[in-house]
C-alpha cells in the first residue's frame, strides 16, 4: 500500500497533493498496490469527495483541533495510522508543513526518510529516491534500507494527476473515519495562532520561482510599472541590477548579483540587462533564463537559454498582451 497525506491549507487542497497522487499512481501501477489518502481536518468530507476518484481508500480523522496543520497534533494521529496500516511508502509534501512534520514523524517511528525527492522507485524491500544536493548542482540516488519508508515530494516535480497522461483506474475510495483520540493538553506544547504575511519590505527574491529582472535597458522609472504588472501576470517577482538600485527606483532587496542576492529560480527573465559579471554571478544557476537585450554581443546571452535581440520597451507590451490572452 502507498499512503499519502493530503495537504490542506486555509480550506484548500494544495496542488502538491495532486502531484503526489500522480507519483503514487505511477508506483501503484508498477507494483499493483493500492493508494490510501489520509485527510486530517476539521471537516473531511469535502476533501474526501474531491480526491476519492484518485484513491482506493481514504482515511479521515476529523476534529476541530485538526483545523490547522500542527506537527505535534498530527504526530500521534499519523503514528497510529502508520502503525495500524503499515504502508510500504508514505508520501508527504516537501512543503512548509511537510518539512516540519516528516522528520519528526519518521524519527518517532524509527522509519527511514528521504526528503525533497523529485523521483522515486519502489522496490519490494526498499525505495530508491532521486533528489538534488549542493543547491541543485548534483543529483543523488538514495536508498531506504527498509520499508515502510517515508518520502517528502518536491513541489512541481510531477504533473498534477489530471494533467498527467497516466491511465487511472476508475476509483471511488472507501472512506474510513478514525476517531481523534488526542489529549488536548498537547496544544500546550505547540499551538497554531494564525497565518500572517511576510512584510512587503522583506521581499525575498531568492525564494521566488519566477523572477523578472530589469537592468539599465528599462531606461526610465516610469517603465517599471509595466514590468511589475507583467511579473504579477505570470506569478513572478520583480528583481533588478545594481544601477536600478542606485537610481533609487527599487529597494535593495530586489537586487540580483554579487552585492545583492544570488538566485536560482525556475525561470529568470532578464530584460535590458547586458550582464556585468557581478550580475551574472548572481543568476547564472537559474533553471531557465530568457534574456531580451538590444546588443547581440551582450554577455547575458552567454548564460541565457533563450535569447531575444530586440528592444524590451517594444516587446514587453506585445508579450504582456499575449500572455493575458493565453491565460484567457
Amino acid at each position: 500500500m502507498i499512503s499519502l497525506l493530503i495537504e490542506i491549507r486555509e480550506g484548500q487542497i494544495k496542488d502538491i497533493t495532486y502531484e503526489m497522487l500522480t507519483l503514487a499512481h505511477k508506483l501503484a501501477a508498477a507494483q499493483k498496490q493500492e493508494i490510501t489518502s489520509i485527510i486530517l481536518s476539521d471537516n473531511c468530507q469535502q476533501y474526501a469527495d474531491t480526491i476519492k476518484q484518485y484513491s482506493h481508500k481514504i482515511i479521515c480523522v476529523e476534529d476541530p483541533l485538526l483545523a490547522n496543520f500542527n506537527t505535534q497534533v498530527y504526530l500521534p494521529v499519523l503514528s497510529n495510522i502508520i502503525n495500524d496500516t503499515k504502508p510500504n511508502l508514505f508520501l508527504i509534501a516537501s512543503s512548509g508543513f511537510g518539512t516540519d512534520l516528516a522528520p519528526y514523524l519518521a524519527a518517532s517511528l524509527n522509519l527511514p526518510l528521504i526528503t525533497d525527492i523529485f523521483d522515486l522507485e519502489l522496490n519490494p524491500d526498499n525505495m530508491l529516491a532521486r533528489r538534488s544536493m549542493y543547491g541543485g548542482k548534483i543529483n543523488a540516488d538514495i536508498i531506504s534500507k527498509s520499508l515502510p519508508a517515508i518520502a517528502t515530494v518536491r513541489v512541481g516535480s510531477f504533473e498534477k494527476i489530471l494533467a498527467s497522461n497516466l491511465l487511472i483506474p476508475n476509483l471511488s475510495a472507501e472512506i474510513t473515519k478514525l476517531p481523534f483520540l488526542i489529549d488536548p493538553s498537547i496544544l500546550e506544547m505547540s499551538k497554531f495562532i494564525e497565518y500572517g504575511e511576510v512584510p512587503t519590505t522583506g521581499i525575498d527574491i531568492t525564494k521566488s520561482d519566477i523572477l523578472i529582472a530589469v537592468g539599465r535597458g528599462i531606461k526610465e522609472q516610469k517603465n517599471l510599472a509595466a514590468v511589475e504588472k507583467f511579473a504579477q501576470d505570470i506569478g513572478g517577482t520583480l528583481a533588478c541590477t545594481r544601477p536600478i538600485i542606485d537610481a533609487g527606483w527599487l529597494p535593495k532587496d530586489r537586487q540580483v548579483g554579487s552585492s545583492g542576492k544570488t538566485v536560482k529560480p525556475k525561470l529568470y527573465i532578464a530584460l535590458g540587462i547586458s550582464g556585468a559579471f557581478q550580475h551574472i554571478s548572481g543568476m547564472k544557476s537559474s533553471e531557465n533564463i530568457i534574456a531580451v537585450n538590444k546588443d547581440p554581443e551582450a554577455p547575458i546571452f552567454s548564460v541565457a537559454h533563450y535569447g531575444v535581440v530586440g528592444d524590451l520597451l517594444k516587446i514587453l507590451p506585445l508579450l504582456a498582451n499575449r500572455i493575458n490572452a493565453l491565460k484567457g
Binding site: 496543520f69 512543503s95 512548509g96 499551538k191 495562532i193
Partner: peptide, 13 residues
C-alpha cells in the same frame, strides 16, 4: 515561513 509569502504564527513551549 510557508510557501507564497505566508507565515505560520505559533506558540511553542
Amino acid at each position: 515561513e510557508l510557501e507564497g509569502g505566508i507565515l505560520e504564527r505559533k506558540e511553542i513551549s
